[in-house]
């Protein structure tokens, strides 16, 4: 039996909005560690890894490891029926073919049950090796979203380069080119507004903007985003989910033929 009670139900709503356009169907895995998901997009270019640690739930009961196949579009439809202030409880029986989402209003005067059919999904967990990244950039998530949106009106590929000068986002298209340079800036009133560039080695990589834009759907989850880059490795774009976990997006680079 599984029963997970999340007081800040809006987090789960935001998590779904962050992944449903990238992945259609995925297995949610439940263990003593937490509620997690690893899934690739249909073209196998990007991978999303979600972890919501068990300590982040007000009540967390997971008697045995359980993998629940869900259509994320349908799950999103159901979670949209929860209010932003609602407490969300996820319930399932071992070996059952449904999952129940229970929504409680903060004043307990409205309680709703939505039962969703589970599906069998063949998926294999990929091993993600630990890596030392050449450069790590932390910046406001809204700024990253703005840059990806702006550049995608000009081109379809972004080159992200980190040097001692800063981090440069470049694109080129039929109408022209664009370059946006951010310099390290830690003299800000609020720490979440800082731009922190940790460069061990300079790096320059090309990525499809379509995917980057899709990752920025996670912007409402976190004020900051961390972008980890190494030559010859997928970029990692990470958003923290409150104090309880993260969404990490991995995107394979484009290479010169």
């Amino acid at each position: 039996m599984l029963e997970l009670r999340l007081v800040q139900g809006s987090l789960l709503k935001k998590v779904l909005e962050s992944i449903k356009d990238l992945v259609n169907d995925a297995n949610f895995d439940c263990s003593s560690t937490g509620f997690s998901l690893q899934a690739m997009d249909s073209s196998h270019v990007a991978l999303v890894s979600l972890l919501l640690r068990s300590e982040g739930f007000e009540h967390y009961r997971c008697d045995r490891n359980l993998s629940m196949g869900m259509n994320l579009g349908n799950m999103s439809k159901m979670l949209k029926c929860a209010g932003n202030d609602d407490i969300i409880t996820i319930k399932a029986d071992d070996g059952g073919d449904t999952v129940t989402f229970m929504f409680e209003s903060p004043t307990q005067d409205k309680i709703a049950d939505f039962e969703m059919k589970l599906m069998d999904i063949d998926s294999e967990h990929l091993g993600i090796p630990d890596a030392e990244y050449h450069s790590i950039v932390r910046m406001p998530s809204s700024e990253f979203q703005r840059i990806c949106k702006d550049l995608s009106t000009i081109g379809d590929t972004v080159v992200i380069s980190v040097t001692k000068e800063g981090v440069k986002f470049s694109t080129a298209g039929d109408i022209g080119t664009a370059n946006i340079v951010l310099r390290q800036n830690t003299t800000v009133d609020k720490p979440e507004d800082a731009i922190v560039i940790e460069m061990n080695e300079p790096v320059s990589l090309s990525f499809a903007l379509r995917y980057m834009n899709s990752f920025t759907k996670a912007t409402p989850l976190s004020d900051t985003v961390t972008i980890s880059l190494s030559s010859e490795l997928p970029v990692v774009v990470e958003y923290k989910v409150a104090e309880m976990g993260y969404i990490r997006y991995y995107l394979a680079p484009k290479i010169e033929e």
Partner: peptide, 14 residues
């Protein structure tokens, strides 16, 4: 010309 690499060329199946 640029070619999009697959995530599967970096991360391995178990």
């Amino acid at each position: 010309m640029q070619r999009q690499r697959s995530i599967l060329s970096f991360f391995q199946k178990p």
